[in-house]
Design a protein around this nucleic acid. Structure first.
Length: 823
RNA sequence: GCCGGGGUGGCGGAAUUGGCAGACGCACGGGACUUAAAAUCCCGCGAUCCUUACCGAUCGUACCGGUUCGACCCCGGUCCCCGGCACCA
């Protein structure tokens, strides 16, 4: 009797059924409200890991629930299929990257299907397919035509292991995000996208993203790093060029006692050329070159500098101050030069101490503990201006405005805004990416390939050495081109695009995946956008999510879509851990989804992963926990089958006994709680499942009573199957069929709950004395504060408890509790 | 250093946001069924104390203090863990 359900047969049966009947096919339908749920598409490594299972289970539950709620649901899947691993496979094993990738995609698609995910596979996209990268190239050209793509020679981040450049976003702790190799600098001519043009909008619109975790918005805000300040022009003695500096504290201008330039500053060479300082300066710069970026930017690195023998004049008071170069001033922020105010900046203070430079306080914090004439540390806070000529006595906030206004009037400075965000370096010296569709002509410069010639196909006659330049350069024909403008022989760009471009618009391609004349049709995109719910790992909080927002805004400006933001609601799911550590090969704690599915079935895998923790938290994998989920499904299965055996499909259920009422209550409560768990931004699937478990326990209790009400149990079982079906679809399809239904449970409506059944005749009231629980009592529900007080104070047991005591106060909370304060 | 998030039984986690702390599950213990085991069904399960037992009492949500009739929840301070940013002028 205690036989287990045959999950292998059942899951196969329904997966086939869904595929054969196109159950998950989605069409635009203006008569229905749409819902677009999207999980971040995977890189097709070939093997599913638990993080995937978690990500896609969360999305699938949501998609299935919204479908049952009557929405027209778009739930697509595709492949972020350009990228390094394919190329590394080519270098190591001599396999063609395209073959390697397509094989992996096929394998992974099967694994997804074995999870029972409700994707519309008709809309599948792969970024490495020419039909996709053709439009990627088209988009790049639009960026170029709008002045949002440009080529520039610059020191760039260079990963010596990947042999390619990296975007700032891909350098984490000074190391390559992918291979963890320390990143160096290399002077290269590279393509950039002008994301800085959108910095302010990307920052401002974060406020609109009310469905995003605060944490992610904050991370983006910090990354964009807006700061307000002023650019000030300093004159250098005996040098015709002016020195621009950026400061966020123009109020401290009178306290500037020296200047510091970045060692890479273009003026430095000119300023020391032929002077007695040249040698020392060169040596200093030389020494710095041996430092890696990590060391260079470390806060613990001692500040070191070198006087260059020149003086600048403070434009406000004409004071003559020495100019240094130092390791703590960076060329790529602001203007690459600063005025140093040691009294009010900790870095300048350290530097001044070390080199014995003057410290002039100009902002008085009015703190008796601080002796302004003998500062022990910089005081960067607010205060009143001193030693600042006509600005003395002003609050420093006010002085900031006044000084900026004064400088603007005199033409010696202006208020400016600076961003930490840099333009996005997108060229990669790699093969497996979309070729940048640009052609260099001696006469015309950089010219985009003609639209009718797109896509610029990846050549196949290439060598993979893994060294230096893009493999595209080894093709015998790829580089040859004619200038699209003047027709003269020209050279094609050899670099490919960063794969983060591919993933910056795939969610739009899903809305119109087969369009051959445009990336997507505006009408279709406008019907489906925005993505109502986006789900993925928090590791994309900055990179992908910022780039996708950037693209969406550019598309909006180009008139391609109405949307200005791509993702309405965002869920960042936690990691899957084992024994408290991230699953990884090196730790050897990997649990393979394939093994779990084989042993317990995908329903069990899904159930466990949704039950073990709330989606946004890390989840600790537990083998016994999985076992528990499996047991629960078997428990449901046995019970439902037994109920079917003991009842008829159309029997009318009555609610008469206490057990009946209790079961009815529990059922409605469960429907309510599960429904609530899907409310936007909640995702409390773990508690939703726990309340379903409570319902099952209650059903068992009723079933085991002397006279089980099988018609009511059958009715309850139907509801149970419905609420359980988004979580564990296969077993529910099977039970739904056994309950006598002909169609897929996926097409059923989500059950409503009966508000009245949730109203109980009596409620339990907690009786506290001085805040301590002393007893509980049942009273009729709906009593007012006064009625409750009166009733409880008249209660015999309450009187016993308060006997001989002086009741000073009674607090009553209707339907909940009463607290009697005694002395 | 700055900015976030967090700290609840043996474990994963609940607690409708100020109203019964520990739902649900795992692990563990006990019982039923069985020749036996597994599976299944039922019961128990924060700590300490009292009691033959029932009944009960005290303590308990990282730590210290405060507000309140009442605090896991609010306020002030401390410690620890996780994440992000970091010579950004």
């Amino acid at each position: 009797m205690a036989e287990r359900y045959d999950f292998q047969a059942i899951e196969k049966k329904w997966q086939d059924y869904w595929a054969e009947n196109d159950v998950f096919r989605t069409e635009e339908d203006s008569s229905k409200e749409k819902y677009y749920v999207l999980e971040m598409f995977p890189y097709p490594s070939g093997k599913l890991h638990m993080g995937h299972v978690r990500n896609y289970s969360i999305g699938d539950v949501t998609a299935r629930y919204m479908r049952m709620k009557g929405f027209n649901v778009l739930h697509p899947m595709g492949w972020d299929s350009f990228g390094l691993p394919a190329e590394n496979a080519a270098i190591k094993h001599g396999i063609r990257p395209d073959n390697w990738t397509w094989d992996n995609i096929a394998e992974m698609r099967e694994q997804f299907k074995s999870l029972g995910l409700s994707y519309d596979w008709e809309r599948e996209v792969a970024t490495c397919h020419p039909d996709y990268y053709r439009w990627m190239q088209w988009i790049f050209i639009q960026f170029f035509n709008r002045g949002l793509a440009y080529k520039k020679k610059n020191p760039v981040n260079w990963c010596p292991s990947c042999q390619t450049v990296l975007a700032n976003e891909q350098v984490v702790d000074g190391k390559c995000e992918r291979c963890k190799t320390p990143v160096g600098k290399k002077e290269l001519s590279q393509w950039y996208l002008k994301i800085t043009d959108y910095a302010q909008r990307l920052l401002d619109d974060l406020d609109k993203l009310t469905g995003w975790p605060e944490k992610v918005k904050l991370m983006q805000k910090n990354w964009i790093g807006r700061s307000e300040g002023a650019e000030v022009t300093f004159t250098i003695e005996g040098f015709e060029k002016k020195l621009q500096i950026y400061t966020t504290r123009p109020d401290t201008l009178f306290g500037a006692t020296f200047m510091v330039m970045a060692p890479e500053h273009p003026y430095v060479k000119e300023l020391v050329e032929g002077t007695e300082y040249q040698k020392a300066v060169d040596e200093f710069i030389d020494k710095l070159q041996y430092l890696s970026d990590i060391d260079r930017s470390s806060t613990t690195l001692e500040k070191e500098g070198c006087f260059i023998g020149r003086y600048a004049l403070n434009p406000l008071n004409g004071k003559k101050i020495p100019i240094y170069i130092a390791n703590y001033v960076l060329m790529d922020y602001g203007t690459g030069a600063i005025m140093a105010v040691p009294a009010h900046d900790t870095r300048d203070f350290d530097f001044a101490r070390k080199y014995g430079l003057e410290i002039i306080p100009v902002v008085d914090p009015k703190n008796p503990d601080i002796d302004l004439n003998d500062l022990q540390e910089a005081c960067p806070g607010e205060g009143t201006l001193i030693n600042s000529g006509q600005f003395d006595g002003l609050g420093n906030k006010e002085a900031m405005k006044k000084i900026i206004a004064y400088m603007e009037e005199k033409g010696i400075g202006k208020g400016t805004v600076n961003f930490r965000l840099r333009d996005w370096l997108i060229s990669r010296q790699r093969y497996w990416g979309a070729p940048i569709p640009m052609i260099y002509c001696e006469d015309c410069g950089w010219v985009p390939e003609k639209e009718e010639n797109l896509p610029v196909m990846l050549p196949t006659d290439v060598e993979f050495t893994g060294k230096g330049q893009s493999p595209l350069t080894t093709s015998s024909t790829f580089g040859d081109a004619v200038c699209p403008k003047c027709g003269k022989p020209a050279r094609r760009e050899m670099d490919t695009m960063d794969t983060f471009l591919d993933s910056s618009w795939y969610f739009l391609r899903y809305t119109d995946p087969k369009n051959e004349s445009r990336p997507f049709d505006r009408e279709k995109a406008d019907y489906w956008m925005n993505v109502d719910q986006y789900i993925g790992g928090v590791e994309h909080a900055i990179l992908h999510l910022l780039y996708a927002r950037f693209f969406t805004k550019v598309f909006h400006d180009m008139g391609m879509i109405s949307a200005e933001e791509p993702f309405e609601n965002l869920l960042t799911q936690g990691m899957v851990l084992k024994d408290g550590a991230k699953m990884s090969k090196s730790v050897g704690n990997i649990v393979s989804p394939a093994d779990i599915i084989k042993k317990y079935g995908s329903d069990t895998a899904r159930l466990f992963i949704l039950f073990a923790a709330p989606p946004d938290r890390d989840l600790d994998w537990s083998d016994t926990g999985v076992e528990g989920s499996y047991k629960f499904l078997n428990r449901v299965w046995r019970m439902v089958l037994e109920i079917i055996e003991n009842s008829e499909a159309d029997e009318k259920a009555s609610v008469s006994s206490d057990d009946d009422r209790s079961l009815n209550y529990e059922m409605n409560k469960t429907i309510k709680r599960v429904s609530d768990s899907f409310a936007t931004g909640r995702f409390s699937f773990n508690t939703a499942i726990s309340s379903i478990m409570e319902l099952v326990n209650e059903m068992y209790r009723c079933k085991q009573s002397a006279a089980p009400n099988y018609p009511l149990l059958r009715e309850t079982a139907e509801k149970l199957v419905l609420v359980l079906s988004p979580f564990v679809p296969h077993i529910c399809e099977e039970m739904w069929q056994k309950l006598g239904h002909q169609t897929s449970v996926y097409y059923e409506s989500w059950p409503a709950y009966d508000e009245e059944a949730l109203m109980l005749d009596t409620v339990e009231i907690v009786v506290q004395i001085n805040g301590r629980v002393k007893m509980k009592a049942m009273v009729e529900s709906g009593l007012s504060r006064e009625e409750l007080t009166e009733k409880m104070m008249a209660d015999e047991k309450v009187r016993e408890l308060t006997d001989g005591k002086n009741v000073t106060k009674v607090i009553a909370v209707p339907g909940k509790l009463i607290n009697i304060v005694v002395r």
